[in-house]
């Protein structure tokens, strides 16, 4: 399942933030997006995940192959870790959650209410959700936030296994997690410039 974006312009709150972004993500590959805060990494990822449509350009590849993990983990504090994962597995039409629990060392916590987890443990649970969906293209927004070094390694290992199985990942991240097979895409050159004032008068933007 490959993902291609051709010359897309993405907008936040109706205003273009990135323009002319093209990328190709082949099976077994990973791309890491870099760029300063506020350049539009989250907007680009949400667009590619299918939550919003690009202002211009097109995205190819089945939307059903992508799974998104954003800043919020979608965890219900009153459900246990196991129940949280089982719910998302069921939503994606699957039932086995043990592999995901193992990959992120969550078995000892499986029966604990998710509300009692630390921030890093919650994040691990949020990332384990990616595994239970069984979708090949991961779209990740700052996946390593609040993870300790050990957990970052855990995550990097999970990504490597995923890539080896023919999956792919597109992620925004500031830290280097030692993924040598990942390409880096610097978004700074794609920052949208304001349109000329003449065009501007024709519409609002």
């Amino acid at each position: 399942m490959s993902l291609q974006a051709y010359d897309i312009t993405v907008a936040r709150g109706g205003i273009a933030v990135l323009e002319g972004v093209s990328l190709t993500l082949k099976p077994g590959k990973a791309i890491v997006l870099r760029g300063p805060n506020g350049i539009g990494k989250t907007t680009l990822l949400r667009t590619i995940a299918g939550l919003q449509s690009p202002l211009r350009g097109r995205i190819e590849g089945a939307a059903e192959s992508r799974v998104y993990a954003g800043h919020a983990d979608g965890i219900k504090p009153t459900l246990t870790v196991g129940e949280n994962l089982a719910f998302w597995a069921a939503v994606f039409g699957r039932s086995n959650i043990s592999a995901a629990l193992t990959a992120f060392h969550l078995e000892p916590l499986a029966a604990r209410p998710a509300g009692a987890l630390s921030a890093g443990q919650k994040r691990r649970l949020g990332l384990a959700r990616l595994l239970v969906t069984g979708r090949p293209v991961w779209v990740l927004d700052e996946p390593t936030v609040s993870l300790d070094l050990q957990a970052v390694d855990m995550f990097a290992a999970a990504v490597r296994v995923h890539l080896a199985q023919g999956g792919s990942a597109l992620m925004a991240s500031h830290i280097d997690m030692g993924l040598d097979e990942a390409d880096v895409l610097d978004l700074a050159p794609y920052r949208a410039r304001a349109t000329a004032l003449h065009d501007f008068d024709e519409a609002f933007l």
């Binding site: 299918g50 998104y68 954003g70 919020a72 983990d73 979608g74 219900k76 939503v91 994606f92 039409g93």
Partner: peptide, 15 residues
């Protein structure tokens, strides 16, 4: 669901 991000995930889920 909106606050904890579940809604984003539900929209992209196969439902």
């Amino acid at each position: 669901d909106w606050e904890d991000g579940s809604l984003d995930l539900l929209v992209t889920a196969p439902l």
